[in-house]
Nucleic acid binder design. Structure first.
Lengths: 146, 146
DNA sequence: CCGGATCCGTTTCGATACTG
DNA sequence: CAGTATCGAAACGGATCCGG
């Protein structure tokens, strides 16, 4: 079942940050600005691992550090996220990045293969900025208290 | 933000049942087999309405009955669900319907326009059975107690 | 009957503090 | 840095009640 990923407020954000931004470590997620609590973060990382979506690999140079990385199954979520992004752009009040995102609908396949290439080659340079911006807006925390 | 839909265990199931199966009424969702509590169901229907994803319209012949229906914004979620389904089929242990679903990847556009046509013409006949089966397997409740 | 609303016990979440 | 421990807050689930 995929309700470990969807049906949860954080898992999708983690996947996004791994895929679109170049996040790798516990710390990066923690200070991501979304304000996830450490225990929840730890729990979600575990569950995503159990679901075969991410994989923790100790860094070679420094055994203490752990680098989380999407598995093939994880990177295969890219089409879902991209469609979600397009959906949001289409129905959100107009905004600068929306027209850019809607253009992405046209080169859908091209963008997806670019995402996959980056993942395969461990290329962590920032992805298309409007992709990131759109994702942030679309999936951003809903600021629920104070 | 779209976290009213994703980031919740039930909303996506409701959208699925509206889109793929022909569900329309409170009762149908309630007895859907997923075992949603009536208060939660009422709450989610309200929230989906507030998000502009569904629309309640009283039936003409019988004012008591209410028919819930996806809005344009709601039916536009079809690509996301379809990709989610394909993702699940690709990574779930092989199963009869998987190969069918993977074929859907090829006629993605065709299937999406068929879904939209059904919605536009209020055609509630069952959709491609393997679509439904896949969705049920993919999004089905995780049987969490007893 | 249908579409909820209300009450209440239980489970899960989340913020903060703390630890190896 | 990468997590546990704790504990109050919120969400959930079951049962029951209610208006049309």
């Amino acid at each position: 079942m995929c309700l470990e990923v969807f049906g949860d407020r954080w898992s999708l954000l983690i996947v996004r940050d791994l895929m679109v931004r170049g996040y790798r470590t516990f710390k990066e997620f923690q200070t991501s600005g979304e304000g996830i609590a450490t225990n929840i973060l730890a729990d979600r990382l575990q569950k995503l691992e159990a679901a075969g979506i991410i994989n923790p690999e100790p860094e070679e140079t420094d055994g203490r550090k752990i680098n989380y990385r999407l598995t093939q199954k994880g990177i295969d979520l890219a089409p879902v996220l991209l469609d979600l992004l397009i959906w949001g752009a289409r129905h959100e009040p107009a905004d600068a990045s929306c027209s850019l995102i809607l253009k992405m609908d046209k080169n859908r396949d091209q963008i997806l293969s670019e995402v996959e290439r980056r993942w395969r080659e461990r290329d962590s340079t920032p992805l298309i900025p409007s992709f990131d911006a759109g994702m942030a807006r679309q999936l951003g925390r809903t600021q629920r208290h104070k």
